[in-house]
Structure formats: structure tokens, C-alpha cells
Amino acid sequence: MMGTVIFRTLSPLISALTLMLAVFVTLRGHNDPGGGFIGGLIAASAFALLGLSHGVPAVRQALRFHPMSYAGFGLLLAVCAGLLPIFTGRSFFTALWTFPQVLGVEIALSTPMFFDIGVFFVVSGAMTSIALSLEQRGGGV
């Protein structure tokens, strides 16, 4: 079933769409259902799907870095988002907000947003790593 032509042809497209969905869900999380945890899991499932259809090496090549590196980057980002307020004299993990005008549109930038993006990377990286390493051993269902 996993080796069928339809699956092999469609899976990159589905994965790409899923990844876009993951990013969208993560970024809208602060105001609507979504967030880093959900987005991360969706992204991980996109990579897992691609791994099943095209094999683990292809996914690893597409990712360039090891999935755990992404997770490590995410944790670093999350910690930095927590540390940033310290330099402005506030306590650890105090949220900082800024609303710059870009091309006449107000954009909300905040440390919680970067924290959530960090969560996204940790969850997607760790889960992708788990799924890929198991797929590599199991050789697919």
C-alpha cells in the first residue's frame, strides 16, 4: 500500500501543505485555536508521512540538519525569549510586546511569540527524530 504510485506522487504535495498548515496553526495560536505544540505535531506528521513514502534518507537530506538540531535550536530560542526581559530589568519570562508599523500594517511582535516558535521547533524536531529513527529500523509498515 505504501509503495503505490498514487501515494508516492501525492505525498510530497500533502507533506508540503501539511507543513504550511503547521506554520499557520503555530502563528495564529495566540488568538485562535492552535499554537506551538499542535503545530509541531502537525509538522512532525508531515515529515513522518514523507519518510514512509520516500524513505528516511530522502527526508534527512531535505531537512539538511538532524531533527534534534532543530529541537535544540527551539529550546535555545525559548530560553532566549525568557532571558530577554532580564536585560530590560524585568524578571525572567516577563512578556515584552512591541507593535511596529510595517508598510502601514501593525504587526505584533512579542517574546511569547518567539517562545511559541521555540516550542514548535522542539516538538516538531523531537517527534520527527523519533518517527524517523523508528521508520529507519522498521523499514515501513
Partner: peptide, 30 residues
């Protein structure tokens, strides 16, 4: 906290330190 999704605001802002611990756990299990 400038967020309309209360659940997400609790996770990333009000209880951010807890969440940091939790993602560290996820990382370590990975």
C-alpha cells in the same frame, strides 16, 4: 497578555516557565 486564545496564553505566557520545563523533557526523551 494581548492574546485571545486563553489556553495558549496560559501555556506560553502566564505559565511560560512550566512550558519551558516541559519542552526540555520532550527534548530529553527525544
Amino acid at each position: 497578555a494581548h492574546g485571545r486564545n486563553v489556553v495558549n496564553v496560559i501555556i506560553v505566557d502566564f505559565r511560560g516557565l512550566d512550558t519551558m520545563g516541559e519542552i526540555a523533557v520532550v527534548m530529553i526523551t527525544g
